[in-house]
């Protein structure tokens, strides 16, 4: 597990990283153009076939869970408390009322997070970090900047491993890393101080190594991996442009007559996130429970 990249053989994987970067930009732009919950939901659903095509459904769902946490929080808290709401939609126990305007606001925000998150996950999981770096270089981004980006991806697993070593070492010196929350927070200092120093030293050493591998040499550089914009990329780019034009048309001329967002839709999306969230909690609890019983993990 070196980075988030999932090596698979798919159409999405074989797209040029630059195309995929433009795709992320396109999705971000779209999520702002389509500032209507219904349209964003449609957009989110429309992105899913790409995830399937990239063969990363399972890892995608795992990582999107965390974004869903935000969505639940935003939709619930904003739906009730955001002061822009006036029209009550429904009431839950304790006299807390979800209001239409607040729910629209909260849904747009949460769906935007999910939509952008989907695009980002899709990009990171299907793009080899070195390809990303070499694509950036083709866009005239300085080589050293591209390398910093690349090595950031790579240093994460190294730091994770060092963190484990430091933690075990400190535990061996009777540092209580499994105690109460406050105790754990306090213990971050003896954890992070050595971790920071180790990482710093490693990076420092790596800079010598890079120097010995001709990293700062002037002139043309080459890469083992080939990235090339082909017909597939052009098709994809054209598709994105077409879609963008359609979105703008929709936005400018159709919004008056098209009213997809209803109370029901808002309520069901809210319940939907709650239900998924509920499942996540149950899964988590069961796992903890199994851990306690089995003693493993």
């Amino acid at each position: 597990m070196n980075s988030l990249y999932m090596p698979k053989d798919s159409l999405i994987h074989s797209l040029d990283p630059r195309t995929k970067m433009l795709f992320v930009v396109f999705v971000v732009a779209s999520s702002f153009i389509l500032n209507d919950p219904a349209l964003q939901l449609v957009f989110l659903v429309a992105l899913f076939p790409l995830v399937v095509m990239a063969k990363v459904v399972k890892p995608y769902l795992i990582s999107i869970q965390f974004l869903l946490l935000f969505a639940v929080l935003i939709m619930t808290v904003h739906g009730i408390y955001n002061p822009i709401g006036v029209t009550p939609v429904f009431e839950i126990f304790g006299g807390l009322t979800f209001k239409y305007e607040s729910m629209v606001y909260a849904s747009v925000m949460s769906f935007r997070i999910l939509v952008i998150g989907t695009a980002a996950v899709l990009f990171v999981m299907t793009t080899h970090p070195s390809d990303m770096a070499s694509a950036l270089v083709k866009w005239k981004v300085p080589h050293s900047f591209a390398f910093i980006l690349l090595s950031t991806f790579q240093i994460i697993p190294i730091i994770a491993r060092e963190a484990k070593i430091v933690m075990e070492a400190q535990q061996a010196r009777c540092l209580d890393v499994k105690g109460s929350l406050i105790q754990r927070v306090k213990n971050l200092v003896p954890m992070f101080a050595p971790l920071f120093i180790i990482t710093f030293m490693k990076v420092h050493q790596l800079s010598y190594v890079l120097e010995c591998r001709a990293f700062s040499r002037k002139g043309e550089k080459t890469s083992l991996r080939e990235t090339k914009i082909g017909s597939l990329d052009y098709t994809f780019l054209l598709g994105m442009l077409g879609f963008l034009a359609f979105e703008i048309y929709l936005k400018l001329f159709m919004m008056g007559s098209l009213q997809l967002t209803t109370d029901a839709l808002l309520t069901y999306s809210l319940f939907g996130t709650w239900i998924v969230f509920g499942f996540m909690i149950i899964k988590f609890v069961v796992k903890q429970f199994q851990g306690k019983i089995g003693g493993a993990n």
Partner: peptide, 23 residues
């Protein structure tokens, strides 16, 4: 500390790439 790439072949290719060796 001397390794900076994702795969072994890329690790070996890294220095060569900086020297501009053709693919």
């Amino acid at each position: 500390n001397q390794l900076s790439q994702m795969t072994i072949e890329e690790e070996v290719a890294f220095g060569m790439g900086n020297l501009g060796v053709p693919r």
